[in-house]
Design a protein around this nucleic acid. Structure first.
Lengths: 172, 172
DNA sequence: CCAGGTGATGTCACCTGCTGTCATCACTAC
DNA sequence: GTAGTGATGACAGCAGGTGACATCACCTGG
């Protein structure tokens, strides 16, 4: 992150990253499949947290309520690192390849959510639809949060976006 | 496509592609920003066709009806090349980097549709939502079509998927 | 206490994607 | 017929990425 913020993503070589971390480029590629992945490796933990929250939701919860608890878990996981999130987001937005990688990570998040919902007994296409809506809320809320004032909490932003989607859906 | 089908995308070098086309790798990169792009360059024409169909839809059309005419245009543009579409789809599905590139192309398609809808007077967030739904229908129908029997028409597949989404939405 | 196994790392060689730069050549305009 | 323009080739070079092998620390069973 330091190097990316200082001189940009493309201008930073893997050798530089490795040197800053006190190892060689070869070792870097043993931990990260490619240069981009160093910015996204943590998203697997986010996915696990989302799925775990889904599993822990009460059986009585509707699909959308279950998705809501997953979003709460995501918010509490990311909400404490606003400055880091801002830097990371700025780096990703500035680079086309990184935006691509982010899209596929989001798609995987959605697929994992849908799979978790199916394990709860939700059938298709409701599972995929609810998952897609959940990820859309996540994306919108996250962007609002990183671009908003420091005082705003991710959790409340997420819940607001969630409520807005529900209002839109019921109004239509 | 010949080389990709024969030996796979990763195993095919840009030099080979260029040689098969009767030019050099340096010239290849003057036409395509990177190796992946050779499989997606045509998607700009698809986007233009979608937007043009939107503009030609009657003023009386609802947002969803306008999206429907755009999907019809897309179907008639792609429907005549099933074999090529199958090969291309198989190559993309088999490679992570190509799936990433496809996701971003779909996102651009969605953004272009939303922008076209706004030019028709549709406000946000309805424009983006209708565009997202349209692209979702496109994706599902296209996948169904390339994996289905030869006799199936893309146009009817697309219309079927569109009707299913409408049914889902009105039923909920 | 030590011999062998295991995992993390470094080193080296190498391929391929991608780019800057310059030369060449066909075509067009005046 | 000369000058400009655009497409291409040729060449050198950097950076991302990988395979193969050596090394070293660390267990672990005897």
């Amino acid at each position: 992150m330091e190097l990316f913020v200082e001189q940009g993503y493309e201008q930073t070589t893997v050798a530089e990253i490795a040197e800053r971390a006190g190892l060689t480029a070869r070792t870097f590629f043993r931990y990260f499949a490619d240069k981009r992945e160093v910015l996204f490796a943590g998203s697997m933990e986010l996915q696990d947290a989302l799925v775990a929250a889904l599993e822990n939701a009460p059986d009585s919860a509707t699909p959308m309520e279950a998705v809501g608890t997953a979003l709460d878990a995501a918010a509490s996981m990311l909400g404490g690192r606003l400055e880091f999130s801002r830097q990371r987001h700025a780096v990703i937005v500035a680079n086309a390849e990184l935006r691509e990688r982010e899209l596929i990570k989001m798609a995987k998040l959605s697929a994992a959510l849908a799979s978790g919902l199916r394990r709860r007994g939700v059938t298709e296409p409701e599972a995929s639809l609810a998952a897609e809506v959940g990820i859309a809320v996540f994306r919108v809320a996250f962007e609002t949060w990183v671009n908003g004032p420091r005082t705003r909490k991710l959790t409340t932003t997420m819940r607001d976006s969630f409520a807005q989607v529900k209002a839109l859906a019921t109004a239509g």
